[in-house]
Each structure stands twice: as C-alpha cells, then as structure tokens.
C-alpha cells in the first residue's frame, strides 16, 4: 500500500493493518505508524527494563570495591559496567518512543525518583555478603536471560536489536556468577554457608521476578496485551517453569537447597509445584517499599543533585561529545 493510501485510512483500519503486519511476523520500526496503545505498552515495558538495568547495577556495585581477588575485582567491574551499558541502550530505545510525546531521558529519571516509574523487584533487595554477589550474577541474571531471550522475537525491532546484544553479554554474566558460586561451593564451610544463606535470601525474590501467574494475584497484569502485540511469546508462569527446570537441578548438583519443602516436579501435570511467594509483599516491594528501595533511590538522587552543576556546565557547551573508551 502506498504511503498516501495508508494516510487516508481511518484509525481503525490503520489499527487492523498494524495487527496484520505483526501477525505476519513483520517488525515495527521507531518511525512506523503504531497504535497509541502499542506505544503505551512499549513505554511501560522498555523504560522499566532500562531503569532496572541501571538500578540493578547498584546492589552489585556494593561488592565491586570489595571483590575478594584481583581477578574478581576486574570481572565484577566489567559486569556492572555492562549493566549500565544495557541501561543506556534501552533508554535510547525509550527516548525514540517518547519523542513524539515530547518527553526526554530526564523525564525517565524524574519518574524514577518520584516513584512513577518502577524497577524490578530483585533490585530492591539487600545484598549483605559476597555470596549475594554470586547469586545475583548466577540466578538473577539467569532469570533475566530466560525472560529476555523470550522477548528477542519482539515485534518492536529496536527493542529486539538491543535485547540481542544484551542477551549475548548476559551469558558472560551468568558464567561470571557461576564461577563465583562454584568457588564458594567448593570452598570452606564458612564459604558454603555464605552461599546457602544467599540462596535462601534470594529464593522468594527469584520466584517473584517473573511476575504473578494471573492478574488475580496482584490485580494488574499486561501479559495478555503484550502477547497480543507480539511483544512477548510466553506467560509469566511459563517463564518461571523454564527457570525452575533449568536451575533446580543445577542448584541441587552443587549441594545447595532451596528454602521450599513443597517444591517438586509433578510428572502428570508436567509442572513444577512450589510455594507461591507472598504477592502482597511483591506489590509493596515494587512500590519502593522494599528493604533497600529508598537507599538505592537515594544514591541516584544524590548523584543527580551532586552533578547538577556538571549538567549545567555541559548544557552551556552544546558541543560536548562524550568520548567513548
């Protein structure tokens, strides 16, 4: 159809054309026509993902200066840098989507600080030991790989391209996490205990990571719409099941346990049965009432305040180009 002909269609006809396109497996580019609702869904998903990468750097950042060997120091620095890089990549995708609405990156940052924009439940949690640094890189990144790989086929092309790069790097992160975890698992009693405690601490958060199975649990879910728009292909529960299938055997094989005695694989149902996490707690956590929510937001806020003079100085010098290293 010519551009002229497309312009003369009604909104409803455009919408139908759009759904035909994505149902035929076509990808949508930033400048293509898209329904407002589609843009709205993307703008729920991508800034949240981007800001979660950035907030996700903070729990591990706590362990960067303390990493217990030169090799680990280098590896975790590089890993956290990658997370910031992912945040940058995703915020750029979000910026393009926000431009027609007259919004900018600054707005994303402000939405974060005012609590309008949420970040992933896992990054509200405490990471009190080096064992947590290992479990985050191994299992939280492992969970992220499962959900991000599923979204590689997303109908929104710029997001798909960003995810492709992110997934490639996440594989290295999970290996970095495995290396930390293996060293602790094969280490002294104290090291093994440190690791088991961290797994216990993270278990509920890991189950929550994929979101509730139905909207009934939290009264809110976008998964059906996202499946219709081909932004995702699997439900929250399918992803959680994939995660359990992949990681439960690995966790057991290195002599660790998970803090859920009811957990088992039901051969007939072909499903993992597990203790539901406390979804009310989940709602509290993502509403910035988790154990470290305020402290981590404060870090971003203080960085924002302290560097205001830098932004002003750069604003004056419009020629500023950030050197890439």
């Amino acid at each position: 159809m010519s551009l002229f002909a497309f312009d003369s269609l009604t909104e409803e006809e455009k919408y139908d054309r759009f759904l035909e396109r994505i149902n035929a497996g076509e990808k949508i580019e930033a400048d293509d026509w898209m329904p407002d609702d589609y843009r709205k869904q993307l703008l729920k998903l991508i800034p949240m993902h981007g800001i979660s990468e950035i907030m996700g750097a903070l729990p591990e950042k706590e362990w960067v200066p303390k990493a217990p060997s030169l090799r680990r120091k280098l590896a975790i620095m590089s890993k956290v840098q990658d997370e910031m890089g992912h945040g940058q990549l995703l915020l750029r995708v979000a910026e393009d989507l926000m431009r027609p609405l007259g919004k900018r990156r600054e707005d994303i940052m402000e939405d974060l600080l005012t609590g309008r924009l949420k970040f992933h439940n896992v990054f509200h949690m405490e990471a009190p030991t080096w064992g947590d640094a290992g479990v985050i890189a191994w299992l939280v990144d492992g969970a992220a790989i499962i959900s991000q790989t599923m979204m590689l086929t997303t109908s929104y092309a710029p997001y798909g391209r960003a995810l492709k790069r992110i997934c490639a790097e996440e594989v290295f992160h999970a290996q970095h996490g495995e290396a930390i975890v293996m060293a602790l698992a094969e280490g002294t009693d104290e090291q093994r205990q440190m690791l088991q405690d961290a797994v216990n601490r993270w278990w509920e958060s890991l189950l929550m990571f994929f979101g509730p199975d139905t909207s009934k649990r939290t009264g809110n879910s976008n998964q059906d719409k996202n499946i219709m728009y081909k932004l995702r292909t699997k439900s929250n529960e399918e992803l959680r099941q994939d995660f359990l299938t992949k990681y439960i055997p690995r966790i057991h094989s290195i002599g660790l346990t998970v803090p859920d005695e009811t957990l088992h694989y039901d051969e007939e149902e072909e499903m993992w049965v597990y203790q539901q996490p406390d979804w009310d707690k989940f709602k509290q956590i993502v509403s910035n009432n988790g154990p470290r929510s305020q402290a981590r937001l404060r870090l971003r806020e203080i960085s924002h305040e302290n560097n205001e003079w830098v932004r002003e100085a750069l604003g004056k010098k419009q020629t500023m180009q950030t050197a890439s290293v």
Partner: peptide, 19 residues
C-alpha cells in the same frame, strides 16, 4: 570503582568504568 553507578550521566558511568 567507587564512582560506579553515580557518575554525572550514564554514558560517563560506562566510560569511567572502562578506564
């Protein structure tokens, strides 16, 4: 490394960390 996550902007965070 103590600056990680709190540099003036995200691009700088990535570059400074690389350095």
């Amino acid at each position: 490394s103590e600056w990680l996550g709190i540099a003036p902007h995200i691009e700088e965070d990535v570059a400074f960390s690389s350095i």
